[in-house]
Amino acid sequence: MRNSVVQTIVDKAKTDESIVLLTGDLGSNCLEIFENAYPKRYFNCGIAEQNMLSMASGLAMEGKKVFIYSIGNFNTLRVLEQIRNDVSYMNLDVNIISVGAGMEYGQLGFSHYATEDIACMRTMPNFTVMNPATKYEAVECAKKMLATKTPCYLALNKKGVEVEDTKISGNPRLIKDGKGIAIFSSGAILKEALEVSSIFEKSGINMAVYSMPIVKPLDSKNILNILSKYDYVFTLEEQTVIGGLGSALAEILAPVKGKKPPLHMFGLNDEYISTVGNRDYLRKEYKIDAKSIASKIKKIF
């Protein structure tokens, strides 16, 4: 999905000469297509993210459409104040692309997990926050970045979840239909959500599975209509359970008076563990793999 997003930007940059790409010295085997096509609009800013972020604002002030590329935490948490003051407050056309969403870089260790970025970025006014699961979703998100003049955040993985989803529209996107219970996920953890649904299918329960590539802004009315169709609603994210997708849906449900489904949020609990491994290993350790989620859900209803 990473390469498809860059290709989408490269294609658009042919006609939109305002597009500029900045990297914090990351993106080998990915950004070359942009660099080779538009060397004068490509800048490796070195390992200096603070400068890169504020500089992006300066470029955007002068009418450039700026894309920034780096690993999750380096262009979000490390530079959150630059994002807040220079991009969000100024409401500029700065588009931040993160790779290694969630715990994709498992074995690299804790420093490389992007597990708080969605929560943090959701607090930034003017930002569109996106966390796609599939290649199709990622390209649609890239098109959204290209079409808007306001700041965007996009968390990416190297490869997307493989689902036949090119005909599904909207946000949330109904990936698998079901009745009574529904699970909403954002990002690559859609894979586990689909497996959870398969586990329940074996006992004759059809669980609906939704993917939410856009975490902010949300159409509250539409989401409330969808949530209200179910008796139980679950959210799943490869992120801290504080402040991300689950919180976003809870914020919509909380003020509703009358009948509404209970919402249970699954994600990383408020803790870090001390072992590392690949993404599948870590999901099991953090109990956000399909089996762990299915057993938690069984206890709930």
């Binding site: 800048f43 603070q50 400068n51 972020l53 504020s54 500089m55 992006a56 604002s57 300066g58 470029l59 955007a60 002030m61 002068e62 009418g63 450039k64 104040e81 630059q82 003051n85 220079d86 407050y89 100024m90």
Partner: peptide, 21 residues
Amino acid sequence: EFSTGSLGHGVSVAVGMALAG
């Protein structure tokens, strides 16, 4: 031109403007 207050931001913003120029 630009709002500042937290130190160390404005110089980078200015560099971005100069690069655009």
